[in-house]
């Protein structure tokens, strides 16, 4: 039987390695940062179509993450999706006429909300609504439109 001390040292090392691995998985691999409750103010926006947007998807401005999607609900009167997001406190100079669009990172990547600043003097604050929104591009619709165009042109070509 090995010396008790040696065993203890090895087991200590083993457990430490295991914890380091768990730490790495949660910190480096996963989105634990998204879990820190975002301190900030809530704004809402309505979209016709949010595509694959999810709770905790990032909200970006000029590519910088400024907040997260907090909640997604459905407005049964207007048949629109209502997206509640939290914007971090430090970004409190967003004009009220800011546009919110849903973009896709890469062709098949995750979806996020992109904000584009407007020109108003008043700033967004707790409870504000973003009025100017642009829905997610849905791939099927795009392809559909594209094919329709093609067919249209082909028809015109044949008609000549």
């Amino acid at each position: 039987m090995m010396h008790t001390r040696t065993v203890q040292v090895w087991v200590g090392l083993f457990v430490a390695l295991g914890i380091v691995a768990l730490f790495m998985l949660s910190m480096k691999v996963s989105n634990i940062n998204a879990f820190r409750a975002v301190e900030g103010y809530a704004v809402t926006a309505k979209f016709e179509n949010i595509g694959g947007l999810k709770v905790r998807s990032p909200v970006k401005m000029a590519g910088v993450v400024v907040g997260r999607v907090d909640d997604i609900s459905f407005d049964s009167d207007t048949y629109e999706a209502v997206v509640h997001m939290k914007i971090e406190e430090q970004f409190n100079h967003m004009p009220v006429d800011t546009t919110a669009s849903i973009f896709t990172a890469g062709l098949l990547g995750e979806q996020y909300i992109g904000l584009e600043a407007g020109g108003e003097e008043d700033y967004l604050k707790e409870g504000s609504k973003i009025r100017l929104t642009q829905s997610a591009m849905v791939l099927e619709n795009l392809i559909g439109t594209f094919l329709f165009d093609k067919a249209d042109k082909a028809d015109k070509g044949a008609g000549k």
Binding site: L22, L25, S26, K28, V29, S30, N31, I32, N33, F35, P58, A105, G109, E110
Partner: peptide, 19 residues
């Protein structure tokens, strides 16, 4: 590589369930 990973791997659904 890292940012997409971090954006898609959920701590509760993926990591905790794996454990």
């Amino acid at each position: 590589f890292w940012s997409q990973m971090q954006a898609s791997v959920e701590i509760d659904e993926d990591i905790i369930n794996g454990i």
